[in-house]
Design a protein around this nucleic acid. Structure first.
Lengths: 289, 289
DNA sequence: GTTCCGCATGAATCGATAG
DNA sequence: ACTATCGATTCATGCGGAA
């Protein structure tokens, strides 16, 4: 079954208004970090970052389905020897907007860029903030299970007394059932710390994450034919991965070069018809396939 | 050369007043988390946590040397399906007090608590917030250098097979220009992500953090004969490690049982004279050796 | 003495039940 | 309604005794 891909070129805050209420299952994005560098994006000053982002997050809150999830990849930069506080403030303000701050995942960047400073070490982690619209949201935990540790082999031979005691609270009813559960177990649920290496081959975009990152969240929070939105599409990593995984995709990008690049990358796989279920009008700079 | 060890039994906020201004080189502590450890400590409600901690952090700001560092180990709990925001608020408030929020280290707990829930995974990390009094502070980076880039590999065993299997992504193709330079070095600086397992087999007390944690920060931020303070001493892990590393130690603990336990653990190694350089008076419940 | 293996336990969180 | 208590769920580690 085919999926649709809609990408918009333009200002994120404006283009988001074209999307219907409650229409997206998952938002995964890595907005431009507060920065002075003007080379790619405009570069938002740390002091203005929260004010700049809040109108956008308000739109995201509107377009996300109640069962959906918003994953925000962000890390505060160092300003004048201190960590900036705009991410902390952003979390507090987004909660006032109505977002629930459900969880904070850690992305451990195993091969972070080398460097040396007199008063700090290399920064090897970023925040992956999970926001939700309601306390009940879709989560498909089995999709991201990982192999269990080696200790399991020995463990499964015979359960310890304590294990039996700890499970024994419902001795009468389900004692045998629990044991059989354990015996067939070869995978474990992951934690909220993700270990991924950064990809270094994208020379153009300033803040592109590795494909494994959006893939993990897409598997965890959506099923096939669900829709994934990246309002700061950049080089399109999230959308390309989502399309490969048979999810409908929606992207917004302000820079024409990136827009065209992603447009070219997505088109070949998408010669199907426009899926009107997403329910938005066709604006000027848009490509929907 | 001998070092001194002073421990106080009593309320932390009160006992701190006995310490002189600008007298401590490093504070490493793990205060009771909100609503945690109710059985031993009172248990502070999340809504009152910031107000409870601010008078204490004000004292800590006073007693810390301008060149010193304050490491705060803390993690917010889940309340009603959301991460609590009291840690974020605490950071913002401590900055208003005059603290600089220099860095946030991540403690990746490799053996985090098990469990399964419909809407979240196991929590495998805690914050290690670094605060400073001034932008110039002592840091001895060479003391924590590690052989191959990853501090965990050297300091505590290599990653298990499982950890390697779990790495979703393949290692990136290369860093770019500086990589050869970096790899040829036989030692590298660590990052701001620390991988340690919790110690869960000490039967006497509810285990604080593993010894490797305070040891790392003591090496990084102090030299021999410097002084280390833990205002929430607990079972005394920080002080015991600090004394072993020839640092002067100061500790405060509200529970008499813990106070006596640490007193017994520290005494045998400390038959030297009282070091008046710390400059504080001897209160009632105090042991200085 | 090494290595192997059994084993208790840990700053957890949710949902149901009880006051 | 709203808050406290309790049972159920689950994984990796290092210690200590055994081979």
């Amino acid at each position: 079954m085919k999926t649709t891909a809609c990408i918009y070129q333009g200002n994120c805050q404006e283009q988001l208004k074209l999307l219907a209420n409650d229409s997206v299952d998952l938002i995964v994005t890595s907005p431009p970090y507060a920065d002075q560098r003007k080379s790619t994006y405009g570069g938002i000053h740390p002091d203005n970052y929260v004010a700049w982002f809040l109108p956008i997050s308000a739109q995201l809150l509107r377009v996300l389905k109640p069962s959906g999830t918003f994953i925000l990849n962000i890390k505060e930069k160092v300003v004048n020897g201190e960590r900036s506080t705009y991410v902390l403030e952003l979390i507090l303000e987004m909660r006032k907007q109505g977002w629930l701050w459900t969880e904070e995942f850690i992305w451990h960047k195993k091969n972070c860029y080398p460097g040396k400073w007199p008063n700090r070490f290399r920064d090897a982690w970023e925040r992956l903030l999970q926001f939700n619209k309601s306390r009940k949201f879709n989560m498909y935990q089995e999709e991201v299970m990982v192999p269990m540790g080696d200790w399991a082999n020995a463990r499964l031979k015979n359960l310890s007394k304590t294990d039996k005691v700890r499970d024994i609270s419902k001795v009468g009813s389900g004692f045998g059932k629990n044991i059989s559960n354990w015996l067939s177990r070869d995978k474990a649920y992951p934690t909220n710390v993700l270990h991924l290496a950064t990809e270094c081959n994208n020379k153009n975009h300033s803040a592109a994450f590795p494909e494994g990152l959006p893939e993990w969240f897409i598997r965890l929070f959506t099923q096939e034919q669900d829709s994934v939105l990246d309002p700061f599409m950049g080089s399109g990593t999230t959308l390309i991965v989502a399309q490969r995984m048979n999810r409908h995709t929606v992207g917004i990008e302000i820079l024409p070069e990136y827009y065209e690049m992603v447009n070219a990358a997505l088109l070949p796989a998408n010669l199907s018809l426009f899926d009107i279920e997403l329910g938005h009008e066709l604006p000027k700079s848009e490509s929907c396939v």
